[in-house]
Design a binder for these strands. Structure first.
Lengths: 234, 234
DNA sequence: AAGTGGTCTAGACCACATG
DNA sequence: ATGTGGTCTAGACCACTTT
């Protein structure tokens, strides 16, 4: 366990534990340095991590303060993984519609940087929160990087499987978001009337070494999809 | 100018200048250290900045690589300011619908953490890209923090005015995003048929010292609103 | 084994905010 | 003036990847 990561976790835990509210001032840098017995640089790095995560904000010359918590039920858009964590207070379930191995279309192959003839898993799922349709999701995984998937695995959180079983290190992702009118087949799957709005998110996930491995399109039911984005300036 | 910031800018410029494509490897840490004549820590901080910004990614034991550029015309959702920069290749204009000083509603006062009786500017604008309606925007600015606004100022980029004229230091923001069916009045302003989809973004902006100063709701025309989100893991 | 990125330290010095 | 956060350094050591 990295030192700065551990310190960051302990500080975050302390905030949640004591239920410190927005604007509450934390102990000064020097106090935290003695408390956790690390160098200044390490402590600063821990704080930077928490700042990026939206847990605190730092004001030069003044102090370190607790930042507001996001509204419950909102899905954080910047975290890499699925929303398993964001909706932990809700009942999540998944229905698998399709799972097969195929040779990708030219467009998919290009996005995923596939070699000619390389195969991918194609997955189509419906995800529910509290028995309401949250979204339909179509994903392509490069078989080269994700060699095995089955119906059982993809009925749960795929990303947990990737990181914990396959020990895949996820690096970063690009997401494109837009709103449009649902197509008839989409509306039906989302249990919405024809011509309802839909929220479309295209994502491309990369491993830590920069290889794209998952291209997916998710279409959200607008009634149950609320997103949250925290931005910083630094 | 901070040293790490300057180094970061120079590296970013070099990438853009030489039009290095995704996956191109940059010189090694040690080479960059000698090239820019800074300590390792400073160089690493510069690289971290660029990594957060989505310009590069670093792979331990391997190298530093150029990350893919976002598609043109997409609006980055994590930068704090408006989209002036994202749409610099497009013709942007603004029509002011309303500008007045008022005593905020209980809800607005709560979000902005206003003292009793404190006044706010209320602004309503329509923004156009290439002569198409991009969005309608309603904002509340705390007069205490933004003491003066006029029609001319808000016809341009308000955030440029805040940072460059008022020297306001913007800290961070919370954004909430959802899709819904437009109300009749909204559809009319956006020049869309009744019952069209709309993309709603609520934002709360804070100064660097943690004071909320701007609460706004923006409703985007789904035909011209494409958003981009880059995520990292670190 | 060699090279590359990543963590950590102790300490000097700078910039900003508050009393 | 003091205290607070922020930058910067030189250098030791660690972890991962490549050859």
């Amino acid at each position: 366990m990295l030192k700065y990561q551990e310190v960051a976790d302990r500080i975050e835990l302390a905030i949640k534990d004591k239920k410190l509210s927005q604007g509450t001032r934390l102990p000064s840098l020097n106090e935290l340095i003695s408390k956790y017995d690390v160098s200044k640089t390490t402590l600063v790095k821990a704080l930077t991590t928490l700042e990026d995560k939206g847990v605190i904000y730092q004001v030069q010359g003044s102090g370190i303060f607790v930042r507001r918590q996001k509204r419950d039920g909102y899905i954080a858009l910047m975290t890499n993984m699925g929303f398993t964590k964001d909706l932990e207070n809700n009942k999540l379930s998944t229905k698998v519609i399709d799972l097969k191995i195929e040779t990708p279309s030219a467009e998919v192959a290009r996005e995923l940087n596939c070699a000619p003839g390389e195969e991918v898993y194609f997955i189509k799922r419906i995800r529910y929160v509290d028995n309401n349709v949250l979204c339909i999701e179509q994903s392509y995984f490069r078989k080269k990087i994700v060699p095995y998937l089955n119906k059982e695995i993809i009925s749960e959180s795929i990303f947990n499987y990737l990181t914990e079983v396959l020990k895949l290190k996820i690096g970063f992702s690009d997401k494109y978001l837009r709103t449009d009118i649902l197509k008839k087949t989409e509306a039906k799957l989302l249990e919405l009337p024809n011509n309802s709005p839909g929220l479309y998110i295209d994502e491309l996930f990369y491993t830590a070494s920069g290889e794209p491995f998952d291209l997916s399109q998710t279409i959200y039911n607008y009634k149950h999809a609320n997103f949250f984005i925290q931005s910083g300036q630094k």
